[in-house]
Design a protein around this nucleic acid. Structure first.
Lengths: 166, 166
DNA sequence: TATTGTTATACTCTATAACTATA
DNA sequence: TATAGTTATAGAGTATAACAATA
């Protein structure tokens, strides 16, 4: 594959390094905040937040997994955990008896609200404080491009979950 | 704690979301590539890469941990793993008998070289392909600011567990 | 047959606390 | 006393494969 040695220039390198360092530090701090404020892992928070943002408060397992890049069993594990804590319910889907519909509970929304302010505060403090409005805009623009690119063209390494080899 | 409800605007929100999504996808893909190409976790790669970039090929445990945000025991664990694979050696530090000096081996450098091309290729493909030079520059600039900010002012949540003010 | 989701299981990684030994 | 690092250990998370039920 890598027969022609590709190269990246110094600017690219520093962009990459900064991206890694910033996202790592941010992620770490956010995980701690979520843990402290609501005993949630980052993934659990993402799942809850998605459900909370849904008009119906529900998603099917598969939909819920989308974008959170998961093995199905991993999602089942988290859904179980959240259900045991009473933050979501799971019930058979109406339209497809194979499916499971996950719904956020009132208690789930409570936890979400309990966690949000600190989350926002942390982002403000860590990510946005040193940035001017046009920096933020540039960041959203550039990373938005990358995100769209990644969504459109998943790299070869990201297997599309379907596997029928022997 | 958060008595005054902070808010973030839509641009900030989309910057944050894009950052999370991009870094997650990138990280995931990179981890897979490193695993496939050299049976390395991302953390192990970072440690090796650091050692490889050091003039002496060595660091003390504590120095090595810096920035990779670790518990000391976690670093010990990884260092052990790498040592067992013959990618690094550990020996008592010369200047301080309490210390341990970690040094990358020839075999460690081999693995690094074995992994680099694919790593670069993946970055090029996933991160840089959709970006113009000034996008990259903007990214490096903005994230560089954030990184400097984070380095300068660790958030309250980041307990200064192992370092005191230097 | 393909798809949805669960279960069983094994493994990696991380964190806390207790411990050893040097400074 | 404080610091460097290791060890013991426990827990969370993830992935793979086998499986059951439904489409």
């Amino acid at each position: 594959m890598a027969s022609s040695p590709q190269r990246i220039d110094p600017t690219q390198l520093s962009a990459y390094f900064a991206l890694i360092e910033v996202s790592s530090l941010l992620r770490h701090a956010v995980e701690q905040q979520l843990r402290d404020a609501g005993d949630l892992s980052y993934v659990q928070f993402q799942l809850l937040a998605r459900l909370g943002a849904s008009p119906s408060g529900s998603y099917r397992m598969t939909e819920l997994a989308d974008g959170v890049v998961y093995s199905r069993s991993g999602l089942t594990y988290q859904a179980q955990t959240l259900e045991q804590r009473g933050l979501v319910t799971r019930s058979p889907s109406v339209d497809d008896d194979r499916g499971t519909t996950v719904t956020i509970t009132a208690q789930g929304r409570e936890v979400l609200e309990q966690v949000f302010p600190g989350h926002i505060a942390l982002l403000t403090e860590m990510l946005f404080e040193p940035l001017e409005p046009d920096h933020v805009e540039a960041l959203a623009d550039v990373l938005g491009r990358v995100r769209d690119h990644l969504r459109a063209a998943p790299p070869r390494s990201a297997a599309p979950r379907r596997r029928k080899a022997t």
